[in-house]
């Protein structure tokens, strides 16, 4: 339905954004692409009195290598995550995840920062940044901080962002050339929310896994790091035996919600199947 009435203001700098936000404490929402904020207002899930458009803040734009990391500005649209050569090279899990995010027209407007700040547990990018061991750059009136993705997603739609703070960028550590990656999800139809999804990367030395990072989504209230499955892979080559060990370990990592239409044991089983597929498909970046 039509949106409830609100006041619309543009912030040209972070300072201006904080000022505008603090004036109506608790009743302002930041607007970037608007592809979560606007439908949530149309559905009357929220009705803030003020929308502060932060899309013009220069700090939130751009994709660049800075020292040991790739910094991806929060305003980067999903379509650009999908096509940008620096993302494909240095943050391949984000590029692999992007085609699964919603539909083409949504990807033309939705932003990476908005997606992560919403923290939908069924969304692809939160799990991808978790698996990439990225850091989230947050700026607020108290200064700038970098929060590891592992500490960013706290609960259902709840993140480490304090009221008034702005998610500025994602920092992805530059991967070694021989790191292997894979991403996949199971969804009923193209563009639907995943029933379960997996993002994984691993480092091998002389054919033996020395490090693994695996994150799943649509399996709980937040994206989930599969700590036990990671541990099950380390110290052995990627083989049917080590994959089976990782799949068996998933029961320790996941405690999926029990939904009448989608019982927890079925979701766990799908997660095992998908983890097997993903680990079988691990490749170096293109």
């Amino acid at each position: 339905m039509k949106l409830p009435a609100f006041e619309y203001l543009r912030a040209r700098s972070p300072e201006e954004a904080w000022q505008l936000h603090s004036e109506v404490e608790g009743d302002a929402v930041y607007l970037s692409g608007g592809h979560s904020v606007v439908p949530s207002m149309a559905l009357r899930l929220q009705a803030p009195s003020r929308l502060i458009d932060i899309s013009g803040i220069a700090d939130l734009h751009g994709i660049a290598v800075q020292g040991e990391v790739l910094r991806i500005g929060a305003m980067t649209r999903h379509a650009e995550v999908m096509d940008n050569p620096l993302v494909a090279r240095h943050a391949p899990l984000l590029a692999l995840a992007a085609p699964h995010v919603a539909h083409p027209a949504i990807r033309n407007r939705g932003t990476l920062g908005g997606n992560l700040a919403l923290a939908d547990p069924a969304s692809e990018f939160p799990a991808a940044v978790l698996a990439l061991r990225a850091k989230i750059e947050i700026m607020g009136p108290e200064g700038r901080r970098h929060v590891p993705a592992d500490d960013f997603f706290l609960d259902l739609y709840e993140t480490a962002l304090a009221p008034g703070e702005i998610l500025a960028a994602v920092h992805v550590p530059l991967p070694p050339a021989d790191r292997v990656f894979a991403f996949d999800e199971i969804a009923r139809r193209r563009g639907d929310y995943a029933m379960v999804g997996v993002a994984a990367q691993a480092d091998l030395e002389e054919g033996v896994v020395v490090d693994a990072s695996i994150a799943l989504f649509s399996v709980g209230f937040t994206p989930v790091r599969a700590t036990a499955a990671q541990a099950a892979l380390i110290g052995a080559p990627l083989s049917p035996e080590s994959l089976a060990r990782a799949q068996a370990s998933l029961a320790e990592d996941l405690d999926p919600p029990d939904d009448p239409g989608f019982p927890a044991p079925r979701r766990l089983q799908l997660a095992r199947v998908l983890l097997g597929r993903v680990l079988n498909r691990m490749e170096t970046r293109p």
């Binding site: 619309y8 607007l31 608007g34 606007v38 458009d53 899309s55 379509a79 949504i106 407007r109």
Partner: peptide, 12 residues
């Protein structure tokens, strides 16, 4: 680029 005109505010 195609976008949803229902999700883009006119002011945007």
């Amino acid at each position: 680029a195609p976008v949803h005109a229902c999700l883009v505010l006119a002011v945007q």
